[in-house]
Computed example of a mutant assay.
Amino acid sequence: MINLTVNGQAHSWDGDPSLPLLWYLRDEAGLTGTKFGCGRALCGACTVHIEGQAARSCITAMSDVANQKITTIEGLDANGDHPVQKAWREANVPQCGYCQSGQIMQASALLQQNPHPSHDEIRETMSGNICRCGCYQRIESAIRLAATGT
C-alpha cells in the first residue's frame, strides 16, 4: 500500500507501484489538470510539486512518492488565485493552453525557491517546459509580474 497526500488530502494506492504518478492523478484521483505531453519528461506538461519541488509526473513512479506531499494545478489555489495564476491571467499568457498547468507549476516552484529571479534564472528554470504556441515572452512577463506582486 502506497500512502501519499495529494492537494492536502490523504490517498492510498494498492496497485502497481511502477504506475506513473501522472496516470494515478488523472485516472484514479480524477485530477485532469496535469497533462500528458511526451511521457519522457522532456516537455513539462505533466509538472507537479513533490514536497514543494517541481517534478515530472510522467516518469515518477507511485513507489517514488510514498509518504510524499503532491500538489497539482488544482491544489495550487482552490480559487485559481495563486500569484502566478493571477499573473498568467493579467499577462494573457495562454494561447491554446495545453501546456499551461505545467508552466504554472514550474514557475510557482521557481518563485517559491527564488522570489526574485533574474532574466537568466527564469529562462534556465523554464527551459524544460515546451510551449508549442511559442508564448515564452508572455510566460516570462507573467513570472516577472508574479515576482513583483504588481
Rank of each mutant, 00 (worst) to 15 (best):
E121V: 00
L31H: 02
H49I: 01
N129K: 07
H116I: 09
R138T: 04
A10T: 13
C131P: 00
D120Y: 07
S118G: 08
T125A: 11
P117Q: 02
L42T: 14
T150K: 15
K86N: 11
M126G: 10
Q113H: 13
A66W: 06
A91R: 13
I143L: 06
A54C: 02
D14H: 12
V84I: 15
T47G: 10
T150P: 10
I59W: 07
V6D: 09
S127W: 04
A146S: 04
D14F: 06
Q9V: 12
A61S: 15
T72W: 07
S108I: 05
A146C: 01
W23R: 01
A55I: 00
R56S: 12
R26Y: 11
R40T: 14
N3Q: 15
Y136M: 12
Q106E: 12
W13V: 03
V6Q: 09
A61F: 14
P115E: 01
R56E: 01
I73R: 05
K69C: 04
G33N: 05
G97M: 04
L4S: 07
G8A: 07
R26K: 03
P115A: 12
T60I: 02
Q113P: 04
S108V: 04
M126Y: 01
A142L: 01
E28R: 13
G52Y: 04
I143V: 14
N79A: 15
G39Y: 00
S101R: 09
A55C: 07
C96A: 05
S118V: 08
D120Q: 12
C131L: 11
T5R: 14
Y98K: 06
D16V: 07
S57G: 04
A54M: 04
S108A: 04
C38I: 08
N129T: 14
A41K: 05
A87T: 05
H116K: 15
I2W: 06
S127C: 04
A147F: 09
I73G: 02
